[in-house]
Design a protein around this nucleic acid. Sequence first.
DNA 1: GCTCTCACATGGTGCGTGCT
DNA 2: AGCACGCACCATGTGAGAGC
Length: 218
Amino acid sequence: MKILCWNCRGVGNPATVRELKQLLVVNVPDIIFLCETKIHANELSRIRFMCRMEGCFAVSSDRKSGGMALMWREGVNVTIQNYSKYHIDSVVRREEGEKFRFTGFYGQTEPSLRNEAWDMLRRVKNTVNEGWIVRGDFNAILNDSEKDGGRRKSRAGMDEFGDILDELSLRDVKTFNGWFTWSNNREGNRMVKERLDRFVISDDIMEKMPFLVSYVVR
DNA sequence: GCTCTCACATGGTGCGTGCT
DNA sequence: AGCACGCACCATGTGAGAGC
């Protein structure tokens, strides 16, 4: 089972849709989670059709901010449990009959909204009975090694993120290749790279899927 | 003096719309 | 379809202030 997650920073323009289709051809994922779609949910059904995906559930962007979509291939059994502007929560059933929980998460940068988003994850945690995989654009890092260039992130913010992961009993999945998942696309010493996107998983997923690997694509 | 946080200005980027 | 423009969003850079 392959899950592809992409922080697309807007999926409304044709070039980005072309890039998405290319990613699907190269990686052939069973499930795709897109965040920062920056478009209305209705638009996603058109993109789902163009990408030849069987199912689609989208959350509209808040004007030009946020927006998420979960799409899945024919034959993959995905049931949406709940959603908000911060997350899409689903149960995925594998061919062998086993199931796991998959939550796509979009973290906020604004402090008050950030706490709302963490509360949402806490609520999801209370309803999870199976292995739990959370893929998030958390907009947060755990320590200084997860940011290269630019100003240092506040210590309080990094500690808060670590505490939340501890509280939810989620473990960070290190990527097999690469480290940073986001950059500001600037040249030379103005370039800033951060590890804002990551998979975090519950302990039982670690036991059930010991060969689970996370790659940075591109 | 050092570190951290906050507010504001700035620049890069993407979407929506209108025009050709 | 391609282009230009305006608008909106977001991260960065800078300076000021607070706390140690």
